[in-house]
Design a binder for these strands. Structure first.
Lengths: 130, 130
DNA sequence: ATACCATCTGGAGCAAGCTCTAAGTCAAGT
DNA sequence: ACTTGACTTAGAGCTTGCTCCAGATGGTAT
């Protein structure tokens, strides 16, 4: 699979795929005899994983560390587990922030619905935001 | 309340508070006769709201638009409601991405726990990541 | 008066994460 | 043989969201 095909398949620009490889967010992608990347199963699984993690906001730096550990082999299993657990903590913390924000947005939206209804009835509005 | 006190109260640097005001993320903060900001109830509520929204990753640009609409008065209620609903959609979408990522992390962590257990028993490991 | 300290402003600087550019290589088609 | 077009690299540039800095001002303590 060429970079163009991988790019299309995962909806990640070719530039970004090259960038990811350059910085070690995915391991080196095998090349054909003329130096052109050939994305196969393995590279694709990495891309897919990183797309998932990045879309959730996991930091590139943490993911690079993870990839490096995987490439170092089976002595790093424990370290990898710890790294992933730390990222999970951070992810959950962020989701809690978002949950709070979501509830607040819901409250505000309901408030506006009420206000708009009241306004249509020609009632006076109270001032004061937020 | 001075900027130092507000900064401490909300755990946002004074620089950031000034920045937020400068870009319109919060409405202008009233000043005393010598030009020093005096954060009162109203400003504080804005800060608190923005802290919440920003911690959830809501884009500054959207929040600036919201503040501008609030300052324009009651003709913008409907527009504000729509803006908030759009942000809510985006927030929920991101939370879904994070949920997927979280499940994936959980799966990987469990996989590592299993692998580490197996390894301790001196069993051979299969290769292949992720 | 003088020193000190927090505050002010406008603008520069910085980190993360892409995104774009220039110049070069290679395989295929005419 | 020559053009075309996708690929390569190294490096510059961009966006977002702060963060820091320099120089000015003003109230308070000695």
């Amino acid at each position: 699979m060429t970079i163009a095909e991988a790019s299309k398949k995962y909806e990640i620009s070719a530039d970004t795929l090259r960038y990811y490889e350059r910085i070690g967010l995915i391991p080196p992608v095998p090349r054909n005899k003329s130096g052109i990347r050939d994305y196969e199963e393995d590279s694709c699984r990495w891309i897919e994983l990183m797309k998932c993690m990045r879309s959730a906001g996991v930091r590139i730096e943490a993911l690079i560390r993870y990839v490096a550990l995987v490439q170092q082999g089976d002595d790093t299993l424990e370290e990898r587990r710890m790294l992933l657990m730390e990222q999970r903590e951070q992810l959950m913390a962020r989701m809690e922030d978002m949950q709070r924000s979501l509830e607040r947005l819901n409250g505000k939206i309901m408030g506006y619905e009420e206000k708009i209804r009241t306004q249509r009835e020609g009632m006076p509005l109270d001032k004061g935001e937020p």
